[in-house]
Design a protein around this nucleic acid. Sequence first.
DNA 1: GTGAAAGCGCTAACAC
DNA 2: GTGTTAGCGCTTTCAC
Lengths: 334, 334
Amino acid sequence: MADVARLAGVSVPTVSRVFSGATSVTPETRERVERIAAQLRFRPSATARALASGRSAVIAVLAGNTTRYGYAEAIRGVEEAARTAGFSVLIAVMESPDDDLVEQTVSMVANHSVAGVVVLKFDAAGVRALSRVPSHLPLVALAGEKEREISQAVLDESEAAERLTRHLLELGHETVHHVRVPSSVREDGRTAGWRRALEKAGAPIPDPLDASWRPRSGVRIGLTLASDPSVSAVFCGNDEIAMGVMRGLFEAGLRVPQDVSVAGFDDHPLAELWVPALTTARQDFAELGRRGVRLLLSRIGVRAPVEFSSETPDLILRASTAPPDEARRRPRQS
Amino acid sequence: MADVARLAGVSVPTVSRVFSGATSVTPETRERVERIAAQLRFRPSATARALASGRSAVIAVLAGNTTRYGYAEAIRGVEEAARTAGFSVLIAVMESPDDDLVEQTVSMVANHSVAGVVVLKFDAAGVRALSRVPSHLPLVALAGEKEREISQAVLDESEAAERLTRHLLELGHETVHHVRVPSSVREDGRTAGWRRALEKAGAPIPDPLDASWRPRSGVRIGLTLASDPSVSAVFCGNDEIAMGVMRGLFEAGLRVPQDVSVAGFDDHPLAELWVPALTTARQDFAELGRRGVRLLLSRIGVRAPVEFSSETPDLILRASTAPPDEARRRPRQS
DNA sequence: GTGAAAGCGCTAACAC
DNA sequence: GTGTTAGCGCTTTCAC
């Protein structure tokens, strides 16, 4: 920058003004500086800028994972929106909800004097990270239970799960079994919505079954469900588990949807390709990420109030759900 | 840091020495400083450190995408290895191979005075980014055609593709059709391996078909393939496309593997759950990312030589491939 | 082994 | 509108 200043015949702060977009620069001066800078291939040091100004053009993402469908898409949304707004993205993964680990991860991020933090409140690690982010840092939570004093963008999975369960009941199923994915809270949104639908309909409420994040864990559960003749409809916490469950049902000799209806959640890109195509609820995680960044940016620099943004996933009805068909189930009961 | 120095009764540089792990500090001094620092919850500013020393504990990842299976896993591997080594990860996505865009993304990253750069050479954007990274920055390429002067970690997909194709030929198929995924080069490794296997076997070499990255694009191709009676085995550029192709074949009334064998590539987590379970080659992208970081770290700080690290994916034989069965194919030909 | 002085490349205040 | 003067919070010589 000093070189640019010298060659342009101006002072260093003037060059700084040109690059920070300040208005108080004569068009001629600006042009001259820009020409010299381009000539020298000058690039302002983000580091020096951050140190001097106290704020950097970096947004940090704290996540428990980066590869699972929802996580990856949310991060993509954050990255897209951040990049569009001129911010870079620093990513920090917390492999477990261990307090020390979370603490360490958060402070690692805070040391980088980032402009703001986006926390994926998809799991216990996310929940813990939220409360450890220094209060002076602009912060936004993505998903999870509603926050009081933190800006937050969510997907109303409770509502969507209720609708999906209701859909299955309306098809004629006496009840709907539920396979949960890991959650940080007593009762996650999907499970709550499922339960509510059953309660409202006066249907029996079976105990939920617990899957891990690995799609494979659904297979074992599918086999278990297949051995229970009262199971005619299953709502799974996500599409990948649903695919595992369908695989388990298949291995047990049952057909979907003739013998058992299966619904997933998320609308994974492969859900429509599965045979049978999977009924699900479309969660727009990328848009969730973008919304989150929008909320965050509104609090960076200015003192905007805490905001809450919610969207309800759409139901996607496909071939994996159908009315129970007693006639067709006979072979299985014989 | 000044506060810590004052309370510990030492000078600022001494505190700095304690935190940078320099040996030239008395154990007593070190302990006292550490105690005070912990008391004050002092965290050294990564920004100031980077500015003063010229090197930061940040590794940048340049990628064309973050969510597709291979990309996401590779990034996970990079992040894991980086974190383990005490580095943070800055992620920059190039949405297109457009020169200006790539240039801009690279310089955005370079401005952050990162310690090193990992480029996912999975596509054209990656290829272009590689040549634009300032030469003073430690750099490593992940995957892609072999580099001369850049450290690189790869998966030998050409070899794996050849083996997979040979496997299909050995099952008795007269030839193997190939569905490509987008590539930045004339002939990507998988296609080259496929072609080599056919050439060596003296089998006819059909024109490859081109899919996009979207699994859905495989469906159309599956329908096309189904209409060609000479098609009895298909090797797809990745598992997701293979799933799309299987869906297309299914829609056309063909069975896998009885009517057509289908093989994928990568061993996507859902490949084993698909019905029929998918034959594929396991690409350990996460390990690729870790290997890349290892190569990178060996060049950060020290002047280690350029290295090349290669691993060959294992074949995973499952139910989607089988010998051609003329008897069973009869219904289709009638 | 430790301290004093200088400076990394930029921005922020304040004059003019 | 532009220049001058001070730092931002560290690391780096270089004395001692």
